[in-house]
Design a protein around this nucleic acid. Structure first.
Lengths: 153, 153
DNA sequence: CTGGAGTTCATACTAAAGTACCAAAAGCCT
DNA sequence: AGGCTTTTGGTACTTTAGTATGAACTCCAG
Protein backbone atom coordinates (compact mmCIF):
# COMPACT_ATOMS: atom_id res chain seq x y z
CA UNK A 1 0.00 0.00 0.00
CA UNK A 2 2.60 2.51 1.11
CA UNK A 3 4.87 1.32 -1.69
CA UNK A 4 2.13 1.96 -4.23
CA UNK A 5 1.52 5.43 -2.86
CA UNK A 6 5.24 6.15 -3.03
CA UNK A 7 5.30 4.95 -6.64
CA UNK A 8 2.38 7.21 -7.45
CA UNK A 9 4.07 10.15 -5.81
CA UNK A 10 7.19 9.58 -7.82
CA UNK A 11 5.30 9.25 -11.08
CA UNK A 12 3.46 12.48 -10.33
CA UNK A 13 6.74 14.22 -9.61
CA UNK A 14 8.20 13.05 -12.89
CA UNK A 15 5.11 14.23 -14.76
CA UNK A 16 5.27 17.63 -13.12
CA UNK A 17 8.93 17.99 -13.92
CA UNK A 18 8.31 16.97 -17.48
CA UNK A 19 5.57 19.58 -17.78
CA UNK A 20 7.87 22.24 -16.41
CA UNK A 21 10.56 21.26 -18.86
CA UNK A 22 8.20 21.40 -21.81
CA UNK A 23 7.04 24.80 -20.63
CA UNK A 24 10.63 25.97 -20.41
CA UNK A 25 11.23 24.54 -23.80
CA UNK A 26 8.32 26.45 -25.29
CA UNK A 27 9.63 29.59 -23.72
CA UNK A 28 13.07 29.03 -25.16
CA UNK A 29 11.52 28.27 -28.51
CA UNK A 30 9.60 31.47 -28.38
CA UNK A 31 12.68 33.49 -27.54
CA UNK A 32 14.46 31.70 -30.34
CA UNK A 33 11.81 32.58 -32.86
CA UNK A 34 11.42 36.17 -31.78
CA UNK A 35 14.99 37.14 -31.16
CA UNK A 36 16.33 34.86 -33.84
CA UNK A 37 18.99 33.14 -31.79
CA UNK A 38 21.06 30.49 -33.39
CA UNK A 39 19.81 26.91 -33.57
CA UNK A 40 22.97 25.73 -31.88
CA UNK A 41 22.31 27.56 -28.63
CA UNK A 42 18.76 26.31 -28.58
CA UNK A 43 19.72 22.70 -29.13
CA UNK A 44 22.59 23.02 -26.69
CA UNK A 45 20.27 24.24 -24.00
CA UNK A 46 17.83 21.44 -24.63
CA UNK A 47 20.63 18.92 -24.65
CA UNK A 48 22.00 20.19 -21.35
CA UNK A 49 18.58 20.32 -19.79
CA UNK A 50 17.62 16.80 -20.76
CA UNK A 51 21.00 15.41 -19.94
CA UNK A 52 20.52 16.82 -16.47
CA UNK A 53 17.02 15.35 -16.41
CA UNK A 54 18.38 11.98 -17.41
CA UNK A 55 21.01 12.12 -14.72
CA UNK A 56 18.41 13.10 -12.19
CA UNK A 57 16.03 10.32 -13.23
CA UNK A 58 18.80 7.75 -13.08
CA UNK A 59 19.81 8.96 -9.66
CA UNK A 60 16.25 8.74 -8.45
CA UNK A 61 15.97 5.22 -9.81
CA UNK A 62 19.23 4.23 -8.21
CA UNK A 63 18.22 5.71 -4.90
CA UNK A 64 17.33 3.15 -2.25
CA UNK A 65 19.11 0.46 -4.16
CA UNK A 66 21.73 0.15 -1.49
CA UNK A 67 22.67 -3.44 -1.07
CA UNK A 68 23.06 -4.44 2.53
CA UNK A 69 24.35 -7.94 2.75
CA UNK A 70 24.19 -9.21 6.28
CA UNK A 71 26.56 -12.06 6.83
CA UNK A 72 25.90 -13.91 10.02
CA UNK A 73 29.22 -15.00 11.29
CA UNK A 74 28.85 -17.72 13.87
CA UNK A 75 31.33 -17.31 16.63
CA UNK A 76 31.76 -20.23 18.94
CA UNK A 77 32.90 -19.02 22.25
CA UNK A 78 33.07 -20.10 25.81
CA UNK A 79 32.89 -16.50 26.83
CA UNK A 80 29.61 -15.29 28.17
CA UNK A 81 27.94 -12.39 26.37
CA UNK A 82 25.20 -10.88 28.45
CA UNK A 83 21.92 -10.05 26.76
CA UNK A 84 21.45 -6.60 28.22
CA UNK A 85 18.12 -6.11 26.49
CA UNK A 86 16.61 -9.17 28.08
CA UNK A 87 18.01 -8.09 31.41
CA UNK A 88 16.59 -4.58 31.10
CA UNK A 89 13.15 -5.97 30.27
CA UNK A 90 12.98 -7.71 33.61
CA UNK A 91 13.36 -4.36 35.38
CA UNK A 92 15.24 -5.83 38.30
CA UNK A 93 16.53 -3.58 41.05
CA UNK A 94 20.22 -3.61 41.95
CA UNK A 95 19.71 -5.79 44.99
CA UNK A 96 17.49 -8.20 43.14
CA UNK A 97 20.17 -8.57 40.51
CA UNK A 98 22.83 -9.20 43.15
CA UNK A 99 20.63 -11.84 44.71
CA UNK A 100 20.03 -13.41 41.31
CA UNK A 101 23.76 -13.60 40.68
CA UNK A 102 24.29 -15.66 43.81
CA UNK A 103 21.09 -17.61 43.23
CA UNK A 104 22.33 -18.78 39.85
CA UNK A 105 25.56 -19.93 41.46
CA UNK A 106 23.53 -22.35 43.55
CA UNK A 107 23.61 -20.42 46.80
CA UNK A 108 20.88 -21.00 49.36
CA UNK A 109 18.99 -18.14 50.95
CA UNK A 110 21.17 -18.44 54.02
CA UNK A 111 24.35 -18.27 51.95
CA UNK A 112 23.11 -15.28 50.03
CA UNK A 113 22.21 -13.58 53.30
CA UNK A 114 25.72 -14.24 54.58
CA UNK A 115 27.45 -12.92 51.50
CA UNK A 116 25.38 -9.76 51.26
CA UNK A 117 25.33 -9.31 55.05
CA UNK A 118 21.57 -9.31 55.17
CA UNK A 119 18.94 -11.28 57.03
CA UNK A 120 17.30 -14.34 55.53
CA UNK A 121 14.01 -12.46 55.63
CA UNK A 122 15.37 -9.83 53.30
CA UNK A 123 16.71 -12.45 50.92
CA UNK A 124 13.37 -14.19 50.93
CA UNK A 125 11.69 -10.93 50.03
CA UNK A 126 14.12 -10.29 47.19
CA UNK A 127 13.88 -13.82 45.87
CA UNK A 128 10.11 -13.73 46.01
CA UNK A 129 10.03 -10.47 44.07
CA UNK A 130 12.55 -11.93 41.64
CA UNK A 131 10.37 -14.93 40.92
CA UNK A 132 7.40 -12.67 40.22
CA UNK A 133 9.40 -10.44 37.88
CA UNK A 134 10.86 -13.42 36.05
CA UNK A 135 7.47 -15.13 35.81
CA UNK A 136 8.74 -18.35 37.34
CA UNK A 137 7.68 -20.35 40.35
CA UNK A 138 10.94 -21.55 41.86
CA UNK A 139 14.59 -20.56 42.13
CA UNK A 140 15.57 -23.46 39.88
CA UNK A 141 13.30 -22.15 37.15
CA UNK A 142 14.78 -18.71 37.73
CA UNK A 143 18.26 -20.16 37.18
CA UNK A 144 17.18 -21.89 34.00
CA UNK A 145 15.50 -18.75 32.67
CA UNK A 146 18.41 -16.49 33.58
CA UNK A 147 20.71 -18.76 31.60
CA UNK A 148 18.34 -19.21 28.70
CA UNK A 149 17.86 -15.44 28.38
CA UNK A 150 21.62 -15.03 28.65
CA UNK A 151 21.24 -12.75 31.62
CA UNK A 152 23.82 -14.63 33.65
CA UNK A 153 26.36 -17.34 32.80
CA UNK B 1 47.46 3.20 -11.66
CA UNK B 2 44.76 0.93 -12.98
CA UNK B 3 42.21 3.38 -11.64
CA UNK B 4 43.78 6.21 -13.65
CA UNK B 5 43.79 4.15 -16.82
CA UNK B 6 40.19 3.26 -16.24
CA UNK B 7 39.37 6.95 -15.76
CA UNK B 8 41.10 7.81 -19.02
CA UNK B 9 39.27 5.08 -20.85
CA UNK B 10 35.96 6.34 -19.49
CA UNK B 11 36.71 9.92 -20.45
CA UNK B 12 37.65 8.83 -23.96
CA UNK B 13 34.44 6.86 -24.19
CA UNK B 14 32.43 9.85 -23.10
CA UNK B 15 34.18 12.04 -25.66
CA UNK B 16 33.54 9.56 -28.43
CA UNK B 17 29.91 9.23 -27.47
CA UNK B 18 29.53 12.98 -27.36
CA UNK B 19 31.07 13.29 -30.80
CA UNK B 20 28.69 10.67 -32.15
CA UNK B 21 25.76 12.47 -30.60
CA UNK B 22 26.79 15.79 -32.09
CA UNK B 23 27.19 14.10 -35.42
CA UNK B 24 23.74 12.56 -35.12
CA UNK B 25 22.43 15.92 -34.11
CA UNK B 26 23.93 17.57 -37.14
CA UNK B 27 22.43 14.91 -39.31
CA UNK B 28 19.04 15.38 -37.73
CA UNK B 29 19.43 19.14 -38.15
CA UNK B 30 20.31 18.68 -41.76
CA UNK B 31 17.31 16.49 -42.36
CA UNK B 32 15.22 19.04 -40.52
CA UNK B 33 16.44 21.85 -42.70
CA UNK B 34 16.16 19.91 -45.90
CA UNK B 35 12.92 18.11 -45.37
CA UNK B 36 11.44 20.85 -43.20
CA UNK B 37 10.19 18.72 -40.35
CA UNK B 38 8.48 20.39 -37.51
CA UNK B 39 10.51 21.91 -34.68
CA UNK B 40 8.63 19.79 -32.19
CA UNK B 41 9.87 16.49 -33.57
CA UNK B 42 13.39 17.79 -33.72
CA UNK B 43 13.40 18.99 -30.11
CA UNK B 44 11.62 15.88 -28.99
CA UNK B 45 14.29 13.70 -30.53
CA UNK B 46 17.04 15.76 -28.95
CA UNK B 47 15.30 15.63 -25.60
CA UNK B 48 14.92 11.88 -25.74
CA UNK B 49 18.47 11.41 -26.87
CA UNK B 50 19.98 13.52 -24.16
CA UNK B 51 17.71 12.16 -21.47
CA UNK B 52 18.99 8.75 -22.42
CA UNK B 53 22.52 10.13 -22.39
CA UNK B 54 21.96 11.57 -18.92
CA UNK B 55 20.63 8.30 -17.65
CA UNK B 56 23.56 6.48 -19.15
CA UNK B 57 26.07 8.94 -17.68
CA UNK B 58 24.49 8.70 -14.26
CA UNK B 59 24.51 4.93 -14.44
CA UNK B 60 28.15 4.96 -15.43
CA UNK B 61 28.94 7.31 -12.59
CA UNK B 62 26.98 5.23 -10.16
CA UNK B 63 28.60 2.03 -11.34
CA UNK B 64 30.82 0.64 -8.65
CA UNK B 65 29.35 3.19 -6.34
CA UNK B 66 26.35 1.01 -5.59
CA UNK B 67 26.70 0.71 -1.90
CA UNK B 68 27.04 -2.91 -0.96
CA UNK B 69 27.28 -2.74 2.76
CA UNK B 70 28.39 -6.08 4.08
CA UNK B 71 27.48 -6.25 7.71
CA UNK B 72 29.16 -8.99 9.61
CA UNK B 73 26.85 -9.88 12.40
CA UNK B 74 28.57 -11.92 15.03
CA UNK B 75 26.33 -14.56 16.45
CA UNK B 76 27.70 -15.84 19.67
CA UNK B 77 26.78 -19.40 20.30
CA UNK B 78 28.13 -21.45 23.10
CA UNK B 79 28.48 -24.78 21.49
CA UNK B 80 27.84 -27.34 24.17
CA UNK B 81 30.26 -30.23 24.24
CA UNK B 82 29.47 -32.73 26.93
CA UNK B 83 32.38 -33.71 29.12
CA UNK B 84 31.80 -37.43 29.08
CA UNK B 85 34.72 -38.08 31.35
CA UNK B 86 33.35 -35.86 34.08
CA UNK B 87 29.96 -37.51 33.62
CA UNK B 88 31.42 -40.99 33.85
CA UNK B 89 33.29 -40.12 37.02
CA UNK B 90 30.02 -39.37 38.77
CA UNK B 91 28.87 -42.94 38.10
CA UNK B 92 25.24 -41.96 37.80
CA UNK B 93 22.66 -44.58 36.94
CA UNK B 94 20.40 -44.09 33.94
CA UNK B 95 17.50 -42.96 36.03
CA UNK B 96 19.61 -40.61 38.03
CA UNK B 97 20.86 -39.05 34.82
CA UNK B 98 17.34 -38.67 33.52
CA UNK B 99 16.32 -37.00 36.75
CA UNK B 100 19.35 -34.72 36.55
CA UNK B 101 18.40 -33.67 33.05
CA UNK B 102 15.01 -32.48 34.20
CA UNK B 103 16.45 -31.07 37.41
CA UNK B 104 18.79 -28.83 35.44
CA UNK B 105 15.85 -27.56 33.40
CA UNK B 106 14.34 -26.22 36.59
CA UNK B 107 11.72 -28.90 37.11
CA UNK B 108 10.41 -29.56 40.61
CA UNK B 109 10.25 -33.03 42.10
CA UNK B 110 6.55 -33.18 41.31
CA UNK B 111 7.15 -32.20 37.68
CA UNK B 112 9.92 -34.75 37.31
CA UNK B 113 7.65 -37.39 38.81
CA UNK B 114 4.96 -36.48 36.29
CA UNK B 115 7.26 -36.59 33.30
CA UNK B 116 8.87 -39.88 34.24
CA UNK B 117 5.57 -41.34 35.47
CA UNK B 118 6.97 -42.05 38.92
CA UNK B 119 5.99 -41.16 42.44
CA UNK B 120 7.47 -38.16 44.22
CA UNK B 121 9.03 -40.56 46.70
CA UNK B 122 11.06 -42.16 43.96
CA UNK B 123 12.18 -38.81 42.63
CA UNK B 124 13.22 -37.78 46.11
CA UNK B 125 15.29 -40.92 46.42
CA UNK B 126 16.96 -40.34 43.06
CA UNK B 127 17.62 -36.67 43.78
CA UNK B 128 19.01 -37.50 47.19
CA UNK B 129 21.37 -40.08 45.70
CA UNK B 130 22.27 -37.59 43.00
CA UNK B 131 23.25 -34.96 45.53
CA UNK B 132 25.47 -37.45 47.35
CA UNK B 133 27.17 -38.59 44.14
CA UNK B 134 27.71 -35.01 43.01
CA UNK B 135 28.98 -33.93 46.41
CA UNK B 136 26.53 -31.07 46.70
CA UNK B 137 23.89 -30.17 49.22
CA UNK B 138 21.03 -28.83 47.13
CA UNK B 139 19.51 -29.19 43.71
CA UNK B 140 20.58 -25.64 42.83
CA UNK B 141 24.19 -26.54 43.55
CA UNK B 142 23.71 -29.69 41.50
CA UNK B 143 22.55 -27.53 38.59
CA UNK B 144 25.54 -25.24 38.95
CA UNK B 145 27.97 -28.15 39.14
CA UNK B 146 26.41 -30.02 36.23
CA UNK B 147 26.87 -26.92 34.11
CA UNK B 148 30.34 -26.16 35.39
CA UNK B 149 31.51 -29.72 34.72
CA UNK B 150 29.84 -29.50 31.29
CA UNK B 151 27.72 -32.51 32.01
CA UNK B 152 24.57 -30.76 30.86
CA UNK B 153 23.91 -27.50 28.99
C1' DC C 1 8.20 18.45 51.36
C1' DT C 2 5.49 14.69 49.98
C1' DG C 3 4.73 10.40 47.49
C1' DG C 4 6.66 6.60 45.28
C1' DA C 5 10.26 3.22 44.78
C1' DG C 6 13.76 0.64 46.91
C1' DT C 7 15.71 -1.66 50.82
C1' DT C 8 15.54 -3.81 55.05
C1' DC C 9 13.53 -6.90 58.47
C1' DA C 10 9.97 -9.50 61.11
C1' DT C 11 6.26 -12.92 61.89
C1' DA C 12 3.40 -16.60 60.59
C1' DC C 13 2.22 -19.75 57.62
C1' DT C 14 2.27 -23.29 53.61
C1' DA C 15 4.75 -25.85 50.27
C1' DA C 16 8.63 -28.02 48.70
C1' DA C 17 13.02 -30.03 49.27
C1' DG C 18 15.99 -33.02 51.46
C1' DT C 19 17.40 -36.91 54.91
C1' DA C 20 17.13 -41.40 56.92
C1' DC C 21 15.72 -45.80 56.88
C1' DC C 22 13.30 -49.46 55.06
C1' DA C 23 11.60 -52.79 51.65
C1' DA C 24 9.93 -55.02 47.56
C1' DA C 25 10.34 -55.96 42.74
C1' DA C 26 13.06 -56.20 38.44
C1' DG C 27 17.13 -57.06 35.85
C1' DC C 28 21.64 -58.92 35.31
C1' DC C 29 25.76 -61.81 35.89
C1' DT C 30 27.97 -66.03 37.12
C1' DA D 1 19.50 -70.06 42.09
C1' DG D 2 21.92 -66.63 44.62
C1' DG D 3 24.06 -62.22 44.84
C1' DC D 4 24.39 -57.85 42.92
C1' DT D 5 22.71 -53.31 41.40
C1' DT D 6 18.96 -50.70 39.94
C1' DT D 7 14.54 -49.04 40.34
C1' DT D 8 10.66 -48.13 42.71
C1' DG D 9 8.02 -46.63 46.63
C1' DG D 10 6.84 -45.80 51.42
C1' DT D 11 6.94 -43.33 56.20
C1' DA D 12 8.61 -40.01 59.23
C1' DC D 13 11.12 -36.26 60.03
C1' DT D 14 13.98 -31.85 59.45
C1' DT D 15 15.28 -28.17 56.74
C1' DT D 16 14.76 -24.93 53.26
C1' DA D 17 12.03 -22.38 50.10
C1' DG D 18 8.36 -19.54 49.12
C1' DT D 19 4.01 -16.53 50.28
C1' DA D 20 1.55 -12.96 52.65
C1' DT D 21 1.53 -9.06 55.24
C1' DG D 22 3.12 -5.30 57.71
C1' DA D 23 6.40 -1.86 59.08
C1' DA D 24 10.35 1.18 59.27
C1' DC D 25 13.87 3.60 56.83
C1' DT D 26 16.26 5.93 52.83
C1' DC D 27 16.45 8.38 48.67
C1' DC D 28 15.00 11.01 44.93
C1' DA D 29 11.99 13.57 41.70
C1' DG D 30 8.04 16.42 41.11
Amino acid sequence: MTAQIKQLKHTALYALLMALLIFALKWIQWKYLIEDHSTEIYTGLIALLFTALGVWIAMQLAKGKVKTIVVEKEVFTTEFVQDEQALAQLELTNREYEVLELLVKGASNAEIADRLCLSISTIKTHVSNLLVKMHVKSRTQAIEKARRLKILP
